[in-house]
Amino acid sequence: MAEYLDIVDENGIPTDETVERETAHAKGIRHRTVHLWLVRKKDGKLQVLLQRRAKHKESFPDRYDTSSAGHIPAGSDYRESAIRELFEELGVHAKAEDLVYCGTRRVVYDGEFCGKLFHDRQVSKVFYLWFDADESAFNIDPAEADRVLWMNLDACIDGVRHNMFPHCIEMDELEILCSGLKVDFA
């Protein structure tokens, strides 16, 4: 079944037109995504929850990624989609008002993906949610991920910066997260 997305302007505001997800990526049509980071304080340090994408995922299999993320279906909004993705991927219930907005990330990528030309144009809002649970407490959807891992925020930044573990996390997103958390981006 085709997934439809709202076509949006440079600020992520829907234009009242929709496009199939595959067409959006084939033609570089701007659409929305949302990224949600779960954060907690443990032993005096900020930690972020990473999910390792499932081995069979078409994009970035076996790589660590944002706690939860996804494309926003046509007619939905950022917070509603973030809450839905969090529940679908990790089994976590949350309220939209508990999400803390960190900033907006604009993605422009042109290249090849899975043997096809791929033109990605995203307006992505980044949020965080204070949430403390053991890794074993998450109900992970095996279609999306195979495990979660709490990592100290400074170790995550350093690991992404120096490519010390397999990931698909962008440095500018970590910078946006740090800004929202009001902590120094090391």
Results as ranks from 00 to 15, higher is better:
6 D>Y: 02
7 I>D: 00
7 I>T: 01
8 V>F: 07
10 E>C: 10
10 E>G: 04
10 E>D: 14
12 G>Y: 07
14 P>C: 02
14 P>Y: 01
15 T>C: 06
16 D>G: 12
16 D>M: 11
17 E>S: 10
18 T>S: 06
19 V>C: 09
20 E>G: 06
20 E>W: 05
21 R>P: 00
23 T>G: 04
23 T>S: 09
24 A>G: 04
24 A>K: 05
24 A>Q: 05
25 H>P: 00
27 K>V: 01
27 K>C: 10
28 G>N: 02
28 G>A: 04
29 I>W: 01
29 I>A: 04
29 I>C: 03
29 I>P: 00
30 R>E: 02
31 H>V: 11
33 T>N: 13
33 T>D: 11
35 H>P: 00
35 H>D: 13
36 L>K: 05
37 W>V: 01
37 W>M: 07
38 L>G: 02
39 V>D: 00
39 V>P: 00
39 V>T: 09
40 R>I: 03
40 R>W: 02
40 R>L: 02
40 R>H: 06
42 K>S: 15
42 K>R: 15
42 K>Y: 14
44 G>E: 04
47 Q>Y: 05
47 Q>W: 05
47 Q>A: 09
49 L>K: 08
51 Q>W: 03
51 Q>C: 10
52 R>C: 11
53 R>F: 04
54 A>G: 12
54 A>T: 14
56 H>R: 13
56 H>A: 14
57 K>S: 15
58 E>P: 07
58 E>K: 15
59 S>H: 15
59 S>V: 15
60 F>D: 13
61 P>A: 08
62 D>G: 07
62 D>Q: 10
62 D>K: 10
63 R>K: 15
63 R>L: 11
63 R>I: 00
64 Y>C: 07
67 S>R: 06
68 S>Y: 09
71 H>G: 11
71 H>Q: 12
71 H>R: 12
73 P>T: 11
73 P>E: 13
75 G>L: 03
75 G>C: 04
76 S>I: 02
77 D>Y: 10
78 Y>H: 11
78 Y>V: 04
79 R>F: 01
79 R>Q: 13
79 R>A: 11
80 E>V: 09
80 E>D: 14
81 S>I: 05
83 I>N: 07
83 I>G: 08
85 E>Y: 13
86 L>Y: 06
87 F>I: 01
88 E>W: 07
88 E>N: 11
89 E>K: 13
89 E>C: 05
89 E>F: 07
90 L>Q: 08
90 L>V: 06
90 L>W: 08
91 G>A: 09
91 G>C: 08
91 G>E: 10
92 V>Q: 05
93 H>Q: 10
94 A>W: 03
94 A>V: 07
95 K>Q: 11
96 A>N: 02
96 A>Y: 00
97 E>V: 06
98 D>V: 01
101 Y>A: 02
104 T>K: 09
105 R>Q: 13
106 R>S: 12
107 V>D: 10
108 V>T: 15
108 V>P: 01
109 Y>A: 12
110 D>R: 15
110 D>S: 15
111 G>R: 10
111 G>M: 11
112 E>P: 02
113 F>V: 11
115 G>K: 05
117 L>G: 11
117 L>F: 14
118 F>P: 00
118 F>L: 08
119 H>S: 12
120 D>K: 14
121 R>M: 06
122 Q>D: 15
125 K>R: 15
126 V>Q: 04
126 V>M: 05
128 Y>I: 06
128 Y>G: 03
